[in-house]
Each structure stands twice: as structure tokens, then as C-alpha cells.
């Protein structure tokens, strides 16, 4: 299996605090890889370095063998990386389908055009994407009035618009009801299967993680402490130590990290 994403010795220090310490990981084609860890483990920092929001202090990021360290989020996106946010980010003043069209316009380098009508462009493709995430019926609704779960699905459709090879999902099910979580992750798993996309996601709901990931990596205090399939992680004493012995609260973990 070919390696889609690879980090080598990824490190980020904020002043004296080392948030991510020497993380090396590999993500293979078609893989659904979960990155977990307790509060303050460095997951979001790690994610932000992958997406270009943060520049690593040391180490490098490689996409399909090419070094993408320090490139801007825009460039990384153009290289075929899509992402969804922990707190949804959509265009509230537009309709659902226009949100997707926007990503398609950007993908086709058409955002600076002033003559054509935007709402007529890539409409069919946008509908296909909405179909894929089960949002086709809501295509013409005002984005600002959507339910939270629907926003998450819309975001997924946006992230898939440029047919990415890699999808980074930061806490994809945060803030959702348990049933919605399962449904969204099932959807994601289906897309991975059908489209051949690779996914790296962070998550704090262990049910979701254990139910859907192909492989799990555990981050604690900035360092990778475990890497393996579901069974292996479930039985790993260090992971149990971190999660159960540490007494950390799962909920709302990355909120503190983001703040």
C-alpha cells in the first residue's frame, strides 16, 4: 500500500512548552486512521501543522512523497487535501448548494470571475456531492438555519469537492447526538471505501473510534505512545493508563487546547 501522508519527527514548541514532540506517522491509501489522546495531548497542534496553519519547529510533512512542510493551507488544499473543522465553518449567508459550489469554483480557479452567475456554475456536481452526503433534499435551504448534524455533513461535502486524496477531519462528531455520530462516521467510512480517499481524524468518542477506524494512534503529552489496530490499542496498557488511570475528562478536551 502506498503512503499518502507521512510526518517525520514533527515537533512544535511554543516558547518552552513542547506541544508536539517528534511525531512520525504514516497514513496509507484507503486507510481510516484515528489520532486520539487526552486533553492537551497535542492533537490539534498536530493537525494544524498538517494543514499548514502552524509551522513545525522541527520535522517535516510529506504528501504522496512530496515535502509540504510550511506550505499555506491554500496550497495544501490544492495538492489534494480536504479538511473539516471541529467547530463547523460554512458560509452562513449562502444556500447549502452554494456552499459546495463555492469550493468547486475555487477548485476550478474561477473565484475571480465577474461575468458569469455563480449560482449557475457547477450546480450538477454540487448536487452530486450533496447526494453523496445525504443532503440533496436540503440543497436550496439557507445554510444559517441548518441543524448541526446537517452542517457537519455539508462540511464533508465541501471537503470532498475537489476529490481529495486525503481528508483531515478534526473531531468530526463533536457536538453531535450519539446516533448522528454513528451515521456520520458510517458515511465517512463508505466514502473512504467508494472513493479511495484516505482519512486522518481526531476524535474523543471511543465508541466512534473503535467502531470505524482501521488503525489508531495515541498521542500523550505531545508524543506518540501507541500505534496499532483497534484490538491492539484497546488492550495496550499504556493507553489504558493514559485514559483510565489519568482520570482525564474526555468531554470538551480540545476546546481547552484550541483556546
Amino acid at each position: 500500500m502506498s503512503v499518502v501522508l507521512e510526518t517525520r519527527g514533527l515537533t512544535k514548541a511554543f516558547g518552552g512548552l513542547v506541544a508536539v514532540n517528534d511525531v512520525s506517522l504514516q497514513l496509507h491509501k484507503g486507510e481510516l486512521l484515528a489520532l486520539i489522546g487526552p486533553n492537551g495531548a497535542g492533537k490539534s497542534t498536530c493537525f494544524n501543522m498538517l494543514m499548514g496553519q502552524l509551522r513545525p519547529t522541527k520535522g517535516s510533512v510529506h504528501l504522496m512523497g512530496e515535502d509540504i512542510t510550511g506550505l499555506s493551507p491554500r496550497v495544501i488544499w490544492r495538492r489534494g487535501v480536504g479538511r473539516t473543522f471541529q467547530i463547523t465553518a460554512t458560509y452562513a449567508s449562502m444556500t447549502v448548494v452554494e456552499n459546495v459550489q463555492m469550493a468547486l469554483l475555487s477548485h476550478n480557479h474561477q473565484v475571480l470571475k465577474v461575468l458569469p452567475y455563480a449560482h449557475k456554475m457547477h450546480r450538477d456536481r454540487a448536487h452530486e456531492l450533496l447526494e453523496m452526503v445525504g443532503m440533496a433534499e436540503q440543497a436550496d435551504r439557507h445554510c444559517a438555519v441548518l441543524a448541526y448534524g446537517d452542517l457537519k455533513r455539508l462540511e464533508l461535502a465541501i471537503a470532498l469537492a475537489h476529490e481529495p486524496t486525503l481528508l483531515l477531519m478534526d473531531e468530526p462528531t463533536a457536538g453531535m447526538a450519539p446516533r448522528e455520530r454513528i451515521a456520520l462516521m458510517q458515511l465517512t467510512a463508505d466514502i473512504v471505501r467508494d472513493q479511495g480517499v484516505s482519512v486522518l481524524f481526531t476524535e474523543h468518542d471511543m465508541d466512534v473510534v473503535f467502531a470505524h477506524s482501521h488503525r489508531i494512534m495515541v498521542l500523550n503529552r505531545g508524543q506518540l505512545i501507541a500505534d496499532g489496530n483497534v484490538e491492539a490499542i484497546r488492550n495496550d496498557p499504556r493507553v489504558q493508563e493514559v485514559y483510565l488511570g489519568g482520570g482525564t475528562v474526555f468531554k470538551s478536551e480540545d476546546e481547552a487546547e484550541d483556546a
Binding site: 488544499w77 490544492r78 473543522f85 465553518a89 458560509y91 463555492m102 475555487s106 477548485h107 456554475m121
Partner: peptide, 26 residues
């Protein structure tokens, strides 16, 4: 007219969510 064009949309996108716009290459 420009408000209805991709450029006008991109301007609104940047206003609505700079994060998403940047993350989708705008």
C-alpha cells in the same frame, strides 16, 4: 451583477468564514 458572480460570492465567503474559504483554496 458582480455581487452574483463568483467574485462576489468569494467576497461573501471570505466574510462568512475566512477559515473555510482559506481551507478551500480561496
Amino acid at each position: 451583477h458582480v455581487a452574483h458572480s463568483p467574485f462576489g460570492y468569494a467576497l461573501r465567503a471570505a466574510r462568512d468564514s475566512e477559515r473555510q474559504a482559506e481551507a478551500t483554496g480561496i
